[in-house]
Amino acid sequence: MSIIKINNLEKQFPVGDGFFTALSDINIEVKKGEFAGLIGPSGSGKTTLLNIIGSLDTPTKGTAEVMGKSIAELSYKQSAGLRNRHIGFIFQTYNLLPVYTVFENVEFSLLLQKMSAVERKKAVMQALEWVGLTDKVDSKPSMLSGGECQRVAIARAMVKRPEIVLADEPTANLDSENSHHILRTMKKLNKELGVTFVFSTHDEKVMQYLDRIIALEDGKVLRDETQEEFAVRKNSQIYKTK
């Protein structure tokens, strides 16, 4: 079952007197529970596509459906509701609220859902258990390492049990060990909870974990392949180079 369905999508931005086409002729379907990534150089359109999937932006032409809802047809309130209940976000720079504790940062999304205090506590502790941070409940972000901050950000994205998690360069600010730890955590959550993950990345380490790799170039889908197809093609390229 497709949780994300994109048909003939085009996105243009006004530049001076004309328009810059950031995305064109995009046709992608992402099934529930996929662990997929958008890869490509800077300016290839990864973040723009992530924005549209996350209902932060709308397509100029074509359609983008998320959980059966057309993004272009959602009101501002409906798109905020979609993000609040069904989509989790993980940012490159964590973006935790500095004055609040780990618990409170994770709890925030649930406050917006007006969940009871007992339910909130249970959900937050569960999310922190997933990322292995139950011992840091009362710590402030400034007391955590970069890896720990990103794990809090994952817990914040996961606490509301979203159907989709969108992660924009989640390992860009992390060292190798922390990057692998984060990715293993997200992969585990993907398997155990069936949450769909869509990454935007150009980090080789991330690509190893992806089930599906969608390569973008100049706003177009260059390749859409599985991890196996990606690995074979890469190996053959290495072989040819040698």
């Binding site: 996350g54 932060l56 501002y76 309130k77 905020a80 509701g81 979609l82 993000r83 609040n84 209940r85 989509i87 976000f89 940012f91 973006n95 609220l97 925030f108 999304s109 917006l112 914040r156």
Partner: peptide, 11 residues
């Protein structure tokens, strides 16, 4: 902070 809150779905 406001940006994150908007992204998290706060109106």
């Amino acid at each position: 902070e406001y940006g994150v809150r908007l992204a998290l779905g706060e109106e």
